[in-house]
Simulated scan of single mutants.
Amino acid sequence: MPLPKSAFSNSNLILLAITYLFYFGQFGVLMPYLGVFLDGRGFSSTEIGELFALITVARIAGPNLWAILADKSGRALRVLQLGALLTFATFSLVFYVDGFWALTFSLALMMMFWTAILPQIEGLTLNCVYGHASRYGRIRLWGSIGYILLTIFTGKMIDVFSSEAPIYVGALVLFSLFVTTLLLKAPKVEKNSSQASVSIWHKINTPVFYAFLLSVALLQLSFGAYYGFFALYLLDLDYSGQATGWLIAIGVLAEVIIFLQAGKLIKYFGVKWILVISILLTALRWYLLAVVANNPAILVFSQMLHAFSFGMTHAASMQFIHHYFGNRFQSQGQAIYLSVGFGIGGAVGGYGAGYFWQQGHGAEQTFTLAAITAVFSAISLLFVSSKRM
């Protein structure tokens, strides 16, 4: 593939797709299997939950610090490249350290730099496709493809080798991500001088944005059990590592399909109702995991709901943020979304899941509470006018 001569060229859009592939491919390595890795290192479910919570805290301050740097400097691509390099370097520490606090520190440090990446990728992509939802969806779906491929591959590597496999695969993926970012081109975004002295606070301090943040935080809180313990849950139910990888991949494959239709669905239903419907389907998904996860057919169906749990909620959220904040506050808007939703919500969800999990004995209770939390996430949006979203 020739190097891109323009940020809007097909080769640059392909590189953006590859960037998504490696970025979310790393999620396919770590999110399902970090618990398996830690379990192999002798961690209890409470310790795993605490570690997830502590490293997720890095997603609260991190995104905002990097976003301010990106917006003030106007060099979002350089921030993206620096974040990718430092993420790879700090993640590599896991090869040399052991024990709860040493691993927590290295992974939290990695997470701090990891938070620099996604807001810049999202903002860069939306600027390169002029905010067009359908074009964005076609590029973003490669993140889902990466998640599928790396999830299946890592599950197989765990079966063939050991629970240490995820860290070796993860290091390779992060290095590949860094190399890809070096090839990207960024469009020139003209600064609007009339907005130069305008604070982002007038965008944040509104009922509609508060409702959106509350919904995102509660939704990510509900994901705590899934991110921390889903793979362990399936292993406890006698599913193999490879079967676990395929089950996770089925969910993300459904996500890929829905991304292809995301633009049309958002245009037809609107951001608000896409979010409400998708979050309610997420609640159903968690309840099915709580009561009938030992039924393979129902388990496959619940995984297919990932199309809505993540695919549609993410696409709709990105559209809302892009249009709500505009170019002037794009990076900071993305950062607030990540730090509050994925940072605070994710940290509380990870800690709570570890507390209730009780080495697998509290699995049904944990997923039931997750379902209830998702219902409240949907309710928080019902009082927002559809025209405001």
Score class of each variant (00 low, 15 high):
residue 256 V to H: 05
residue 256 V to W: 10
residue 256 V to L: 13
residue 256 V to I: 13
residue 257 I to T: 06
residue 257 I to Y: 02
residue 257 I to E: 05
residue 258 I to D: 08
residue 258 I to W: 14
residue 258 I to G: 03
residue 258 I to S: 13
residue 259 F to K: 02
residue 260 L to N: 14
residue 260 L to Y: 11
residue 260 L to D: 00
residue 261 Q to N: 15
residue 261 Q to P: 08
residue 261 Q to H: 14
residue 261 Q to A: 14
residue 262 A to L: 12
residue 262 A to Y: 12
residue 262 A to N: 12
residue 263 G to K: 08
residue 263 G to N: 04
residue 264 K to A: 03
residue 264 K to I: 01
residue 264 K to E: 00
residue 264 K to H: 12
residue 264 K to V: 02
residue 264 K to W: 13
residue 265 L to C: 04
residue 265 L to Q: 15
residue 265 L to T: 11
residue 266 I to P: 04
residue 266 I to L: 15
residue 266 I to G: 08
residue 266 I to Q: 11
residue 267 K to Q: 14
residue 267 K to D: 13
residue 267 K to V: 00
residue 268 Y to D: 15
residue 268 Y to W: 06
residue 268 Y to A: 11
residue 268 Y to M: 08
residue 268 Y to S: 15
residue 268 Y to N: 13
residue 269 F to W: 15
residue 269 F to N: 00
residue 269 F to H: 10
residue 271 V to A: 06
residue 272 K to G: 05
residue 272 K to T: 02
residue 272 K to F: 04
residue 272 K to V: 01
residue 273 W to C: 05
residue 273 W to I: 01
residue 273 W to V: 02
residue 274 I to S: 09
residue 274 I to Y: 09
residue 274 I to A: 06
residue 274 I to G: 13
residue 275 L to H: 07
residue 275 L to N: 02
residue 275 L to I: 02
residue 276 V to W: 01
residue 276 V to N: 03
residue 277 I to K: 01
residue 277 I to W: 03
residue 277 I to R: 03
residue 278 S to K: 00
residue 278 S to Q: 03
residue 278 S to M: 02
residue 279 I to S: 03
residue 279 I to H: 08
residue 280 L to N: 01
residue 281 L to G: 05
residue 281 L to H: 04
residue 282 T to C: 09
residue 282 T to H: 10
residue 283 A to L: 10
residue 283 A to H: 03
residue 284 L to E: 00
residue 284 L to K: 08
residue 284 L to G: 06
residue 284 L to F: 08
residue 284 L to Q: 05
residue 284 L to I: 15
residue 285 R to C: 02
residue 285 R to A: 01
residue 285 R to V: 00
residue 286 W to N: 03
residue 286 W to Y: 13
residue 286 W to I: 01
